[in-house]
């Protein structure tokens, strides 16, 4: 086991290469997901504070609901 981790004497090159690659990938995942979550919250707050837009949304939702009813009726 210990000899495996020594990597034939090249442990100080092999493992840092893997560690650096992992750090880059983890960093990309974490920064991307936190930015996505943050912006989603901001957008929700903005839409809640903007009744005109919210109304338009409700109207659109109602319209689709109506058309769905209409198709199911037919």
């Amino acid at each position: 086991m210990a000899t495996y981790f020594e990597m034939g004497g090249y442990a100080w090159f092999v493992w840092p290469a893997y560690a650096f690659s992992a750090a880059i990938m983890v960093g990309l995942v974490v920064t991307s997901l936190t930015a996505l979550r943050r912006d989603r919250k901001i957008l929700d707050a903005l839409e809640a504070a903007n009744p005109r837009r919210a109304m338009r949304r409700e109207a659109a939702a109602a319209a689709t609901a109506n058309s769905e009813e209409a198709t199911s009726d037919a």
């Binding site: 995942v29 991307s32 996505l36 912006d39 957008l43 903007n50």
Partner: peptide, 26 residues
Amino acid sequence: FYFTVLIWRMHQEIIARRIRSLRLLQ
């Protein structure tokens, strides 16, 4: 991995643009 992270980032960018236009509207 690239495509996964790309979709997250594109999602976020679309939301960021919507935020921007909403703020301009306000």
